[in-house]
Every structure is written in structure tokens, then in C-alpha cells.
């Protein structure tokens, strides 16, 4: 795998999955509406080669104004449909403002979904503020959760799939990950040592 890593930025060239095209079309609309976002889900691993698929891509956005959201909603409406609501006011007030997710899919396809949420706590805020820029095939840009957060949060979630995703990112980017920051995040999230061991790192007992 060839990629160029600098702090906060990864440049990579690869063949696009249909899932990548789907995500790129959605984030393009967020960019046009000037809504700051970060992708936080297992899609990050899939983007970098993990051999699995997914039904939903989790995306956090800034707590934007209703006017900004309505601009996004109008732009999105040409390609996407919202599964939970057909009314933009209801979508904003009864979902986003209540910290519930809005699910968007392409018109005519039920899956995959973009699962859109407002940031709601300090972890989300940190993730958005420290998002990393991904430059794809020299011309497309999207933003992912910091690698350390991607690993730490997946361990915190702790399902078998999450543990596998965490290990994949950890092993693939072991030379780029800030191990001190990762350790601090794991401590804040109170991830137990036996779970951290699932990373199979140099200092950890491999499972």
C-alpha cells in the first residue's frame, strides 16, 4: 500500500468501491453547504482495504443552524432520500437537535445509509476538531476520525467486529499512530487491559 502521511493528512490513490462513490457524493453536498463533518465508522477501515462491507456509514457534523441544514437538505434532495423523515423541520428538530441520527440513502436503494448525527459530547467535538484530511486520487477530499480515536473508540465499543476493525487500523498504521495519544484516549475511555490486548501490539500480550 502506497500512501503519503503527514500529521492530519493522508494522500492515497486507489480504485474506488461503489461505497466510496456513495460516500463521496454525500460529503460533497455537506462541503457545498459548508457543514463541517467527520466520518467515524467502520467505513474508515473499509476505505483502507478491510475486506468487509457495511450497511451504514456514521458521520458526525457540527451543530449547524437550521438554515444551514435546510440548504444541505435541499441540495441532498436531488440524489438522496431521508429514511426517517420527509420534512426538513421535523428532521432538524426531532432528530438532529435531539441527538438522534438521520439516515440518508440514494433514491431507489435502501442500503447503504449515511447515518448523520450532530456532535453531542467532548469526544465527538475532539473527533471533529482533529479530523484528518484524506486526499483521494489527487482530486477528491474527505475527512476521517483521527486514527488514534478510530482505534480507541472501536476498542471501547468492543464487539468482535469492532475489535477486528481496531486491530486492522492499528496494525496498518502502526508507524503513523501517536501511541502516547492512543494510550491517553484508552485511559479516558477506561478501556480494560484485556480489551487493549486485542490490538496485539508489541508491548501487549497477543490474544
Amino acid at each position: 500500500m502506497e500512501y503519503a502521511y503527514t500529521k492530519g493528512r493522508i494522500e492515497i490513490k486507489k480504485e474506488l468501491l461503489k461505497l466510496d462513490e456513495f460516500v463521496l457524493s454525500f460529503v460533497k453536498i455537506l462541503d457545498t453547504a459548508k457543514i463541517k463533518y467527520v466520518i467515524v465508522s467502520g467505513y474508515v477501515g473499509i476505505f483502507f482495504g478491510r475486506s468487509r462491507n457495511t450497511e451504514d456509514i456514521d458521520i458526525l457534523i457540527e451543530r449547524c443552524s437550521k438554515e444551514k441544514f435546510i440548504e444541505f437538505w435541499t441540495l441532498a434532495g436531488t440524489e438522496f432520500e431521508c429514511m426517517n423523515s420527509t420534512d426538513r423541520e421535523n428532521a432538524y428538530k426531532d432528530y438532529l437537535e435531539q441527538n438522534s441520527a438521520l439516515r440518508f440513502h440514494l433514491k431507489g436503494s435502501f442500503i447503504p445509509n449515511m447515518e448523520l448525527k450532530f456532535i453531542k459530547n467532548e469526544i465527538d467535538r475532539f473527533t471533529l476538531e482533529n479530523r484528518i484530511e484524506i486526499v483521494l486520487n489527487r482530486m477528491r477530499t474527505l475527512f476521517f476520525s483521527p486514527l488514534e480515536m478510530q482505534v480507541a473508540y472501536k476498542l471501547y465499543l468492543g464487539s468482535e467486529k469492532d475489535l477486528e476493525d481496531a486491530r486492522f487500523i492499528y496494525k496498518l498504521f502502526s508507524v503513523n499512530i501517536d501511541h502516547t495519544l492512543l494510550k491517553e484516549m484508552l485511559s479516558v475511555l477506561k478501556v480494560p487491559k484485556p480489551i487493549i490486548n486485542y490490538l496485539g501490539g508489541k508491548d501487549e500480550k497477543a490474544v
Binding site: 486507489k14 480504485e15 468501491l17 496494525k171
Partner: peptide
């Protein structure tokens, strides 16, 4: 398996792994 796969990914050109991934999961 993930460890072995990551090692393979690291030494495999992007056009090769991304084409294989596409044909596997799509």
C-alpha cells in the same frame, strides 16, 4: 487473519489490493 492480510496489504500496490477488494466485497 487480519494481521496476515495487513502484512499483505502493506507490500501490495494500491491498484492490486483495491481491485481485489472491490471484486471480493461488491
Amino acid at each position: 487473519f487480519i494481521d496476515a492480510y495487513v502484512e499483505w496489504l502493506k507490500k501490495t500496490p494500491n491498484d492490486v489490493w483495491s481491485r481485489q477488494q472491490k471484486s471480493t466485497i461488491e
